Structures are given as C-alpha cells and as structure tokens.
Computed example of a mutant assay.
Amino acid sequence: MSARGLFIREARLAFAGGGGPAGPAAFYLAALALAPLAIGPDAAILAAAGPGVIVFGALLASLQGAERMFADDASDGTLELYALSGLPLSACALIKALAYTLAAFWPAPVIAGMGALAYGLSLEAALALAAGIALAAPGLVFIAAFAGALAAGLRRAGLIIALIAAPLQAPLLVFAAGAARAAMDGTGLTGANLMLALAFSLAAMVLAPLGAGAALRARLE
C-alpha cells in the first residue's frame, strides 16, 4: 500500500465511520454550550473563563476519534497488512493522524473563534484563540493518536487514552489560551504564545508517530 493510498483510505474512513468533521464539531459545540451552565451568566466571569474552557473543549474533541484510529486495525488484521506493506509503522501512524486532522478536526479553529465571541472576548482575542487552536490542532491529534496506538485493543481504551494524552496535550492548551489572554490584557505576548504552540505542535508531529510506530510494532511482536 502506498502512502497516498493509505491517506485516501483513512480520509474516507474518517467520513464513513465517524461522520467526518460532524462528530468532533458537535462534541466541541456541546461542550462550549454546556459550560456556561456551570460557570454562571456573569459576563466578566464568562470572558475570564472563556479561553480555558474553549481550549479544554478542543482537547476533549481531539480524543473523540483516538480510540477508533487503531483499535479496528489491531482487531481485524489490518495492522499486519501495514507491517507487510513496506511502509514503516511510524509512517502509517503519521498518515493516519494527518488524514484524521484534515478530514475531521479542521472546524476546531472556527468553533473556537465563534465560541470566544460568544463568551464575550474581544475580536482580537477571539482571532488569537482561533489561531492558537489552529496551530495546536495537529499536535493535539497526533498526541491522541500516540495514546490510541498504546491502548489499541485494550479494554476501557478510551479512559487509558485520556490518561496518557491529556498531560502531554496540556502545554498546547496553555499556549493557545495564553495567546488569547495576552490579546485580552495587551501584554504583547500573543505572538510568542502562538510560536510556542506551533513549536510544540511540530515536535508532536515528529515524535508522536515514532512512539505510535513503536507501540504498534510491540503489539505485533
């Protein structure tokens, strides 16, 4: 199987099995809509809590498809075919995570920006938060994919994936929310936070497939 063929297959599966972007987007929107019920109606509190709530919602949405990313491959023999295809398992993991990001997780920055405005943030802060989520999104998904590879085929894999992925995703959330808070406070650190989010996301895109490939290889052995 070629890299291009695998990418097309995974993108189609993201739509056929998980509804494409509809599932993560609906989950993200529901999380943002329900959070004010706990926070309360005070506009100042909503604006202050907005960046943290919105980035945490992105974390939860990124975990939604992580269990499905490798579980079926491990149970139906597809993983063995990947090992025989000539592509390194780390390359297969990279392609699967990239396909999922582009097929299913692309609405996240748009939802983040709209949610920021709904929570009472300024337009500048909303744009900064949307940019932060856009830069953090690949890293969030790739880390979730790594956790999914580690937990592939295990019982209660969803809980295990969350326990593995959430601590590793936390720096991305800090930088994305920090960009919005810097825009709100006028500290001039918006660009620095965005660059840190991009750097961490790129590091995750390099390292997570290597870890996922090692986990899948260990499962085959």
Rank of each mutant, 00 (worst) to 15 (best):
L129Q: 12
L129T: 09
A130H: 09
A131F: 14
G132E: 06
I133N: 08
I133Y: 01
A134K: 02
L135I: 05
A137P: 01
A137D: 08
G139V: 00
L140M: 08
V141M: 02
F142G: 06
I143H: 09
A144F: 11
A145M: 07
F146T: 07
F146E: 14
A149C: 01
L150R: 15
A152D: 08
A152R: 00
G153F: 02
G153Q: 03
L154E: 15
A157C: 11
A157K: 05
G158Y: 12
L159Y: 10
L159E: 15
I160K: 11
I161R: 08
I161K: 00
A166K: 00
L168C: 07
Q169P: 05
P171R: 04
L173R: 08
A176N: 13
A176D: 08
A177N: 14
G178V: 04
G178E: 13
A179T: 02
A180Q: 12
R181V: 13
R181E: 08
A183Y: 14
D185L: 13
D185H: 13
T187Y: 14
T187D: 14
T187N: 12
L189A: 15
L189K: 12
L189N: 09
L189G: 00
G191Q: 04
G191S: 04
G191M: 09
G191A: 10
A192P: 01
L194Q: 11
M195L: 15
L196E: 14
L196S: 15
F200L: 12
A203T: 11
M205Q: 10
V206L: 13
V206H: 06
L207H: 00
L207V: 04
A208T: 06
